[in-house]
């Protein structure tokens, strides 16, 4: 009976095998061999995006002044981002960016939470394409809005030549500002989300595969399966927190970047 518990991460002889990055490269499932070949992760992404769209469409299909049922939930979902991210970081300017930021937050949350959803068990955002795409869009949004608000040369000047320092310092400051504003911002957005999701998944696989290997081991080692399982369980709860927190941080940083790009003073 116990052999049924052995996860994929175990080696064929039943011994323990540590999880590797191979976890994040599952085989193709449909349209194999064509450019549209899809892995498990792509299908999960389509499913979650569909579920999320369906939820918001149902919630606001017939909006009423006094909300009831699903509309209540939908309004709570929007209010959460509006109050905690947009009002905090953008203030009055936030109205224009609310649709973008709110849909980004909930899409990121849906992509992160699959890491702990039963039968899925792999965060969609733990492959680099997803965080990178979100970061590129955020980069485009804050740059385009900055250029629109201040004009191209003024925007570059505001970002690359911070006022109030003697001119020789610009030789040092300007390249640093260029790298940190235009290159490192999207890069750190990507890596922060990707690495958090990757690390979370590897931790869960490590604890649960250790649990089953220990359970199948001979002798008194068996009892160490219990703390291993408890740790895995605790980290599953922790991953829910991380899924929300990373979506929040990604959205908040995007909002802060938009704010700093569109205002005169930093």
């Amino acid at each position: 009976m116990l052999t049924a518990l052995v996860p994929m991460a175990s080696s064929p002889d039943g011994g323990f095998k540590a999880p590797t990055v191979g976890e994040f490269f599952p085989g193709e499932l449909i349209f194999i061999g064509t450019p549209f070949a899809m892995t498990r992760i792509n299908l999960m992404g389509l499913l979650m995006a569909g579920v999320l769209s369906l939820f918001f469409v149902v919630a606001f299909a017939k909006p009423k002044l006094v909300p009831s049922g699903v509309q209540n939930l939908g309004e709570m979902a929007i209010d959460l981002v509006q109050k905690n991210v947009i009002d905090e970081a953008l203030g009055d300017k936030g109205k224009k960016y609310a649709p973008y930021l709110i849909s980004m937050f909930w899409l990121l949350f849906a992509f992160n939470i699959t890491g702990i959803l039963p039968t899925m068990h792999l965060a969609i955002s733990s492959v680099i394409a997803i965080p990178l795409m979100f970061a590129v869009i955020a980069w485009l949004v804050f740059n385009i809005q900055g250029v629109r608000a201040l004009g191209f040369f003024h925007y570059l000047k505001a970002n690359l030549f911070p006022p109030g320092i003697p001119w020789p310092i610009y030789i040092l400051v300007t390249p640093i500002e260029f790298v940190s504003t235009f290159l490192l911002r999207p890069l750190t957005l990507t890596i922060r989300l990707l690495a958090n999701m990757m690390a979370g998944h590897l931790l869960l696989v490590l604890f649960f595969s250790a649990t089953s290997s220990l359970l199948l081991a001979d002798g008194f080692v068996k009892i160490f399966a219990i703390p291993s399982f408890l740790m895995g369980f605790a980290f599953t709860l922790f991953e829910i927190l991380i899924a929300v927190l990373q979506a929040y941080i990604f959205t908040l940083l995007t909002a802060v970047y938009i704010d700093s790009a569109t205002s005169e003073e930093h």
């Binding site: 750190t188 890596i191 922060r192 690495a195 990757m198 690390a199 927190l245 929040y248 802060v256």
Partner: peptide, 20 residues
């Protein structure tokens, strides 16, 4: 709280780059 999370996000990036 907002600024704390921002600061954490920047600080944490270094450790995560180490992990990657």
């Amino acid at each position: 709280r907002t600024n704390m999370f921002l600061g954490i996000a920047f600080t944490e990036a270094l450790a995560l780059i180490g992990l990657v």
